[in-house]
Write a protein that binds this DNA or RNA. Structure first.
Length: 239
DNA sequence: GCGACAG
DNA sequence: ATCTTGTCGC
């Protein structure tokens, strides 16, 4: 599946909604075939009032959660930010970054929601529908759904539910007495696996390592401390 | 009409 | 998302 950098440039909300309704039919929830060896983190960064998007994918070793390689791409925000339509703004640049990777990650954690979305098409689901990699969403704020607040203890979680009771994902406490994060499947992954993976990726911060490092890298990129393109971790070194 | 509203 | 300093609590 391919997409040009400006694929969504001329779309209006009504048309974007149609795209979401169609893409939704291609989503699948299945357990991962094998335990992941690597996991990617996807995020973008912007300067205030700017149209330039700094997108990046960081691939980490699943066991150590240490970055192995990453790809950075500069793009243009041709679609406005509208809650519920985030994918149309960020996905084109993210796909470009993914294509630069020499080795694709076994699963990709995206900054935003998966199916925890009014039409089940959050950015992680949308991206997952266009690429051949299992995706999951990890958001910092709720977009859609209901849940009971998990206890203040790190590791505790509760289900994120749609109005009809459908389970959309989980609200996961990643740190004691700190706001939880919202986990949901994107595509080619199921609820149990995305929860297990998110739990495994918890480090010493609120944000799980994949998206936390992705955020860190795209910010370094935006501020000129990292350059566009594909980069590998020098052997016997750390990023 | 009112409240909610990822990044 | 980004800007931005101090401040409060563990």
């Amino acid at each position: 599946m391919d997409i040009s950098p400006n694929a969504y440039d001329t779309l209006k909300i009504p048309e974007a909604t149609v795209v979401q309704r169609n893409l939704r039919n291609s989503l699948t929830q299945i357990p991962l075939k094998r335990p992941p060896i690597t996991i990617g983190g996807a995020d973008i960064s912007l300067n205030r009032f700017s149209e330039i998007i700094y997108a990046g994918i960081v691939v980490l070793d699943y066991e150590t959660l240490q970055p192995l390689h990453y790809a950075l791409v500069q793009g243009k925000a041709s679609f406005p930010y509208v809650p519920g339509y985030l994918a149309f703004r960020e996905v084109p640049a993210l796909i470009e970054a993914i294509q630069l990777l020499k080795e694709k990650p076994d699963v990709l954690m995206v900054d935003g929601h998966g199916i925890a979305h009014p039409r089940r098409m959050g950015i992680a689901a949308h991206l997952g529908a266009l690429i051949d990699i299992p995706t999951m969403g990890c958001a910092k704020k709720k977009l859609y759904g209901n849940y009971e607040e998990p206890s203040p203890t790190k590791g505790d979680f509760s289900a994120l539910l749609a109005a009809d009771g459908e389970r959309l994902g989980y609200v996961l406490r990643t740190k004691n007495k700190v706001k939880p994060v919202y986990i949901s499947p994107g595509n080619h992954i199921d609820l149990a696996d995305c929860l297990r993976i998110a739990q495994h990726c918890i480090g010493n911060y609120r944000i799980p390592e994949p998206t936390r490092r992705a955020h860190e890298f795209v910010n370094l990129f935006r501020t000129g401390k990292l350059s566009a393109g594909y980069h590998e971790r020098p052997k016997d070194t750390l990023f």
